[in-house]
């Protein structure tokens, strides 16, 4: 589905990604974990076309999408739910979602957009209740659901989510995470970036660990959950038990 080869990018002179390679197969949930500033969000932004790559290759469904502008990446079936939600504050919830389906504009698209709208409302009932409310007045958790819903409106085959648990009440995080396997059941492929490694690894099939712009570790979720280095650095368990 998605193959990233030796991707390098950065801001100004600062090199953030130092040759990252990873792959996501169709129907998988893959998570990318790592500390703040490791380059996780930069990686997703680079795939989505917001940040230009310096070197390397991004292939989606066998088609190179390296350096394409965001609207073309979306049109080729890959949507990003960005970090910090980034909803259109002065627009209503429904309008926000309609924007997510912009790639399908035209006569034929209208019905499909309505269908996609129903699906998103089905997934997050609270968005239906608040459809005429301005997105900026929603709570953080509701905005996160809106951001995910908006990404789903384009009916992507690959959904990338950047820190869906950031700054949200634990109860809502749980709710959002419960929808991820449902998305997988509906045939979507997920690439999930998280600082909250435990939550991400519980739902994911496989994971990668990114440290200062490089992949340092990869494996099945259980494997990573059991990995001592990962436990120490990202799961809040330290070596105290050895000392005891």
């Amino acid at each position: 589905m998605l193959r990233i080869l030796n991707l390098e990018t950065g801001y100004g002179r600062l090199r953030v990604l130092k040759g990252v390679s990873l792959h996501v197969s169709s129907g998988e949930i893959v998570t990318l974990i790592g500390a703040n500033g490791a380059g996780k969000s930069t990686l997703l932004s680079c795939v989505a076309g917001v940040v230009r790559p310096w070197a390397g290759e991004v292939v989606l469904n066998g088609r190179p999408i390296t350096g394409l502008p965001p609207e073309q990446v979306v049109a080729s079936g890959c949507s990003l739910s960005p970090e910090g939600r980034q909803v259109f504050g002065p627009m209503t919830v429904r309008e926000n979602l309609l924007m997510g389906g912009y790639v399908r504009r035209g006569e034929r698209g209208r019905e499909e957009t309505e269908a996609a709208l129903e699906e998103v409302y089905g997934l997050f009932e609270v968005l239906r209740q608040r459809r005429d409310q301005l997105a900026g007045t929603l709570s953080g958790g509701e905005q996160q659901m809106l951001a995910i819903g908006r990404a789903l409106m384009a009916r992507p085959r690959l959904v990338m989510m950047d820190e869906p648990s950031l700054g949200i009440a634990p109860r809502v995080v749980q709710m959002i995470y419960e929808t991820l396997p449902e998305l997988k059941r509906r045939g979507m492929t997920l690439l999930l970036v998280e600082q909250n490694a435990r939550a991400a690894l519980r739902v994911a099939d496989r994971g990668y660990v990114l440290e200062t712009g490089q992949i340092v570790c990869e494996g099945d979720s259980e494997e990573l959950l059991g990995n001592r280095e990962v436990q120490r650095a990202y799961l809040g368990k330290d070596y105290r038990r050895i000392d005891e």
Binding site: A48, E71, Q86, G89, M91, G100
Partner: peptide, 19 residues
């Protein structure tokens, strides 16, 4: 609406597929 979305958040508008 897409034009308003561009003003509200340019990056997010791009991510929605709005040129």
């Amino acid at each position: 609406r897409a034009m308003r979305a561009c003003a509200a958040n340019r990056t997010a508008a791009g991510l929605c597929g709005i040129p």
